[in-house]
Design a protein around this nucleic acid. Structure first.
Length: 461
RNA sequence: GGCGGAGUGGCCGAGUGGUUCAGGCAAGGGCCUGCAAAGCCCUGUACACGGGUUCGAUUCCCGUCUCCGCCUCCA
């Protein structure tokens, strides 16, 4: 089976064949950097990161562009409320988003274009639209003429005559459903010069300009959250195709993370901001939690579900630790066919996780049987699979292990205590042995005896 | 009003016209262990409701109820 993806435009799951064999180009709508990221924002990025890794794993050369919307009404409003320059406000939150992506294991994009850096490209696109009769200037604003593009509404399944009012009824519009490509400058607001006067970008224009600027007039995949289907992506598609670009060949949309059955609001966002969540779980645990459900299924956030995911992650981690200590270092190996089939089926991560856990169970059995060859095989497969998903525990350990002397000091202390305990056990002085173990547990360190001696692990609860 | 998604065993979360099972977490029993922990084995008999199609539906069709999203900014 080859990779199949669910395409919003056709409402079908169909085979993915890149326009250029051996390559894939992906454009993902990133954040409007107006606030601190919460898990809902990052979920989408995680989904597309998994897609990207899977394409790379299959040997494709992937160009992955994620934009930053660094100029918009909310940024201006919030910055003004905070008494800070808008560009500082935007950049501050851009850094928060980047830190969050990194903490959750997203590979850095091939390019990270900002709207404010691509006004030239936007002007060119607007000129093409005006020249071809799809856009018009009205009092310094530039609007897209929705009725000039018969395909309008096709992506989102909207019929033009059913579309309600449209964005804020500006006076210069010919049709209330026309959308803004360019907003004329208001005093005190940032602006850039254009042939039609000073102003700033409308929201939709930037993505069309940047996507085609980096990936060409036609590219493979355009991703974003379901809320973007209409109007954002509908408008992007309209303006790009009206201008003559092929634009995206597949449209992918990820579902929400909700809380108490509702979309995350500003107030809830504080509770589940990435910095707050990273106090409850590690980046990889959080990633495991967010990518296990199918990307088109809503995740109803709960602390309990997160705790479950952490348990599941640790089960995998524990297996790899035991395997490594029994048979030595293990490199990532081939992924099982069922795993590949799962991801090929529109990134069916739930089934992919089932394959991982089945492999872990078989690996644990092999560990108990002391069948080192089988242990190594299964551990290699698990590393291969978790690597594709970006949740290989040994990778993270490698990063963490290199960090500082604290880890070494802890290791020395714990191993010293475990040595005492082993001596007590050898002497059948179980009272002393249990006392040592209790002290370690009280300090948050779990001890497990194996045939090869005790192992330990910090339990970060 | 228009468009779209969803209701599965204690919980999370897949999937399928019928037979052996998603997977995880939790629970109970067993093995192992000095005791634990971890691991392994076993157990649960679920598919919102009402019709219909069918030899047979959780899975297809129709209807109902409930929840959610988009149609204004939003991942």
């Amino acid at each position: 089976m080859t990779l199949h993806l669910h395409d919003t435009a056709t409402r079908t799951t169909r085979p993915f064949e890149p326009a250029q064999p051996g390559q894939a180009s992906i454009y993902v709508c990133g954040a409007t950097v107006q606030g601190t990221p919460h898990i809902g924002h990052i979920r989408g990025a995680l989904n597309y990161d998994v897609l990207r890794r899977w394409l790379m794993h299959n040997g494709l050369d992937v160009l992955f562009v994620r934009n930053v919307t660094d100029i918009d009404d909310k940024i201006l409003t919030k910055a003004a409320d905070a008494g800070r320059p808008w560009w500082e406000w935007a950049y501050t939150h851009e850094r928060e988003f980047e830190a969050a992506y990194t903490a959750l294991g997203c590979l850095p994009p091939s390019a990270l274009p900002r709207a404010t850096g691509h006004v030239t490209q936007m002007i060119k696109l607007m000129q093409r639209l005006i020249d071809s009769g799809h856009a018009y200037v009205s009092g310094g604003d530039v609007y897209f003429d929705v009725q000039s593009f018969p395909d309008y509404g096709k992506l989102s399944g909207q019929r033009l005559d059913e579309v309600q009012q449209g964005e804020s009824a500006a006076e210069g519009k010919r049709d209330p459903r026309d959308f803004t490509l360019w907003k004329s400058a208001k005093s005190g607001e940032p602006s850039w010069p254009t042939p039609w006067g000073d102003g700033r970008p409308g929201w939709h224009l930037e993505c069309s300009a940047m996507a085609t600027s980096y990936l060409g007039s036609e590219f493979d995949i355009h991703g974003g959250g379901v809320d973007l289907v209409f109007p954002h992506h509908e408008n992007e598609r309209a303006q790009s195709r009206a201008a003559g670009d092929g634009f995206a060949r597949f449209w992918l949309h990820n579902a929400w993370v909700t809380m108490s059955g509702e979309k995350m609001s500003k107030s809830l966002g504080n509770v589940v901001s990435i910095p707050a969540m990273l106090e409850k779980a590690t980046g990889q645990e959080l990633r495991y939690y967010l990518i296990q459900p199918h990307y088109r299924s809503t995740i109803e956030y709960s602390d309990e579900a997160l705790a479950e995911a952490r348990q599941g992650y640790r089960r995998v981690e524990q297996f790899l630790r035991r395997a490594t200590s029994q048979v030595g270092d293990i490199e990532a190996g081939e992924v099982p066919a069922e795993f590949a089939a799962a991801l090929d089926d529109d990134l069916a991560t739930p089934q992919a996780f089932a394959v991982i856990h089945n492999t872990v169970r078989e690996g644990n059995t092999a560990l108990d049987d002391r069948d080192d060859k089988l242990v190594a095989e299964h551990a290699a497969a698990v590393r291969g699979m978790t690597g594709v998903l970006g949740i290989d525990p040994l990778t993270e350990q490698a990063e963490r292990g290199a960090d500082n002397g604290t880890q070494q000091a802890l290791t020395a202390l714990v191993e010293g205590m475990l040595e005492q305990r082993q001596q007590a056990r050898a002497a059948r002085d179980f009272a002393t042995a249990d006392d040592v173990r209790d002290r370690l547990i009280a300090a948050g360190i779990a001890v497990a005896d194996t045939a090869d001696g005790p192992t330990w692990q910090v339990k970060s609860d």
